[in-house]
Simulated scan of single mutants.
Amino acid sequence: MPERYDPQQAVAPSGGGGAMDLAMSEAETLEKTPGGPLGTGPAGKPRSLWSDAWFQLRRNPVFLVSGLLILFLVVISIWPSLIASGDPLECHLSKAQEGPEPGHPFGYDSQGCDVYTRTVYGARASITVGVCATLGAALLGSLLGGLAGFFGGWWDALLSRIADIFFGIPVILGGLVLLSVVTSTTVWPVVGFIVLLGWPQVSRIARGSVITAKQNDYVQAARALGAGNGRMLLRHVAPNAVAPVIVVATIALGTYIALEATLSFLGVGLRPPTVSWGIDIANAAQSIRNAPHMLLWPAGALSVTVLAFIMLGDAVRDALDPKLR
């Protein structure tokens, strides 16, 4: 009696090997891999832009290092007493410009204040200015630029001309003119100035992103189905246009911190008794030859902070832009 034909033996003959075995092995590996292949979720479903970006960020060492450093800076800016028990305003002229000693690892400044304590407490003003100015510029620029890009017409033309006027104002010169008449010692005049000159950049990015998003097919389909402008803007356009704004705002945060230190160094930013890295750098510049430690530590803290936020912005940009992977 003739043998019965077995399809499995025809596809996978005894002895193993072959393309079919390799394909079946790879399929089993993908099934056992948590999260599935690149671009899919735990059940093999496609991930959204944000979940896929988070998937990429968690595997980026630049994001992890910068994120941990920023988290540390935020914590000490909120609770500086965790690592510095002294008073940043307590000074002893008898110890002016002295070097490190036990209990005071960074030495003393020209007024006899502890450099370590002032460096730790200086993070609060810089982080506050950077975060508040970034949020203000991002919200104002996104609102104005998004509306201009969505509706167009005379509103778009008017906003573009206003933004061009602000682009033509030199930042340092504008700070010297506008902040020189302010007598407040709080951070809010500096925050307001940075927002005033920072929103046009975000507005231009948001405008271009909204113009690109509103031309997509799903937006046209929503319009054809009778969706109103508010629904289309909030449900379809804004969620798909906000990624470039987040990238620009994250990178700009480090720039704003450096700008605050520059204005404080020139004497028109934050003023004593506020503790700021820019103020300490300005005070140390006159004694850099005799006591370089006065300049080294606040300037180093400022540089590391700005670098951390720029690195974070680069990592976020790479994660949100598939073309850069």
Rank of each mutant, 00 (worst) to 15 (best):
K45Y: 11
G136L: 08
T255L: 14
V306M: 08
L302T: 03
F167Q: 09
L295S: 01
D114A: 01
I194H: 02
L173M: 15
V275H: 06
V120S: 02
V190Q: 09
L253A: 08
P322K: 07
I76V: 15
M24S: 14
K32P: 10
A238W: 15
L312G: 05
P292L: 00
V195Q: 00
M294W: 07
V182R: 14
Q201M: 11
Y5E: 13
L259G: 08
G208M: 06
L30E: 14
I169C: 04
S209E: 14
G136D: 01
L179N: 04
L307I: 10
F150S: 04
L139G: 01
G103S: 01
L143R: 00
L253I: 05
V120G: 05
V75H: 06
R58A: 11
G267W: 09
A315G: 09
L69N: 01
L69I: 09
S160Q: 12
Y116M: 09
P292H: 00
H104I: 11
P189Y: 05
L253Q: 11
P46G: 04
N290W: 05
A53E: 04
P88E: 10
I127T: 07
A53V: 04
G36R: 11
A123C: 11
I281N: 09
A301M: 04
S180H: 04
G44R: 12
G112Y: 06
A249P: 01
A84V: 02
Q56E: 10
V131E: 00
I288D: 09
V248L: 13
T212R: 15
V191F: 07
G269V: 05
V181T: 12
Y256A: 13
V190H: 06
G152A: 05
T262A: 14
V245S: 00
E28F: 12
L159R: 03
L197I: 14
Q56S: 08
G175M: 00
V242N: 05
A53M: 03
P189G: 02
P42G: 10
R4C: 12
S25L: 13
V191A: 07
R231Q: 14
A227L: 11
A10G: 05
M20C: 06
P239Q: 07
H236K: 06
A291R: 00
F150V: 04
S126K: 00
L82G: 04
A163M: 15
L73F: 14
I165L: 14
L143Y: 07
S81C: 04
A125M: 08
P61A: 03
I288L: 14
A96S: 12
S142R: 02
A282D: 10
L225T: 09
Y121P: 05
S264M: 07
Q201R: 15
P322Y: 04
T274H: 03
D114T: 00
L178C: 06
A221K: 09
P61H: 07
D321I: 06
I70L: 13
A213T: 15
D164M: 07
R231E: 13
F265D: 10
G136F: 01
V74M: 15
Y5Q: 11
L82E: 02
G228P: 12
F167E: 07
Y121L: 06
V237I: 15
T128G: 07
G267D: 09
G254Y: 02
I172G: 01
W79S: 12
L57E: 04
D280A: 12
T134Q: 01
Q201T: 12
W155H: 08
